[in-house]
């Protein structure tokens, strides 16, 4: 099914959208390790922003600070214009290692956020079933995580984050434990799903191709201490099929430019 991915563009041609997340002057030290240095970033509402950079440059650190899971050493995070100091219902996290409850079924895992919020069981399971279906896992509601493949487990993690209706999705290398073929399918499904929901996504990845394929905005970070090297907007039209996108000149140029930028950090 390739028509799944001929999704509407995530960046409608509207004028400058408001910024739902703003990062102001964030620095982070782990003891004497200087991980992030004065990061200033804006994340437009309804768009997908990717954090890309060499290993250890602070991508995960920045994402967890935005999630409220880590305290910055300096600076602040604003959500909808308000400073936040901790996790909140406007943000949901998708974990690199899935972080599913191994003793709970797919259904309970997906509904877990609502279970914590004390939503009545029937109501939360209803909603969970809807998203289990959306991520393509219907029929697996009563399975346990260890009965699923890596790709399926991450679909559970995605459904769990979607179902709590947070405006902002934070994803730390969500596809890194998924094999190449399933990864492409998953990327396409993700774009399709997000287009229908008008989510703002902040996405960490190591893969330049993945970043260009899924993003409206790519933030390139330089090595430690992490600083913003550049911000790239690929401006790729997503009206065509996934294969056409991957042959698009803009797509190929963007991949090439980012590669040229990143390769100098490898020496």
């Amino acid at each position: 099914m390739s028509d799944v991915a001929t999704a509407a563009p995530l960046n409608p041609a509207s004028a400058t959208p408001e910024n739902i997340v703003e990062v102001r002057n964030i620095s982070k030290f782990y003891g004497s390790v200087h991980a992030l240095d004065k990061i200033n970033l804006s994340f437009p509402k309804g768009q997908m922003t990717t954090l890309l950079g060499p290993s250890g440059c602070g991508k995960t650190t920045l994402l967890k600070i935005i999630a409220g899971l880590l305290e910055p050493s300096d600076g602040e995070v604003l959500i909808n214009g308000k400073v936040v100091n901790g996790p909140g219902p406007e943000r949901a996290f998708v974990f690199q290692d899935f972080a599913l409850l191994p003793w709970a079924t797919v259904l309970r895992n997906v509904a877990f956020g609502m279970e914590l919020a004390k939503v009545p069981k029937a109501e939360r399971e209803d909603k969970a079933r809807h998203y289990i279906n959306e991520v393509g896992l219907s029929g697996f509601e009563d399975k346990y995580p260890h009965e699923l493949s890596g790709g399926m487990r991450q679909r559970v993690g995605l459904a769990r984050a979607m179902v709590v209706k947070a405006d902002v999705l934070l994803m730390d290398e969500p596809f890194s434990a998924v094999d190449e073929q399933n990864r492409r399918k998953f990327q396409e499904d993700l774009l399709h799903l997000l287009a229908a929901e008008n989510k703002t996504v902040i996405f960490v990845t190591h893969s330049i191709e993945e970043a260009v394929y899924v993003s409206d905005q790519i933030v390139l970070l330089s090595p430690r201490p992490g600083q913003i090297h550049s911000i790239i907007r690929p401006e790729i039209s997503r009206d065509t099929s996934p294969d056409d996108i991957r042959r698009d000149k803009k797509y190929l140029d963007a991949v090439e430019n980012i590669w040229t930028d990143l390769r100098k950090y490898l020496d």
């Binding site: 999630a67 899971l69 996790p87 219902p89 996290f93 974990f95 972080a99 956020g113 914590l116 919020a117």
Partner: peptide
């Protein structure tokens, strides 16, 4: 795994 408690906290667990 640390991500277990991060998961709980990010979904608003007390």
């Amino acid at each position: 795994s640390p991500s277990m408690s991060e998961m709980g906290r990010s979904f608003g667990a007390t």
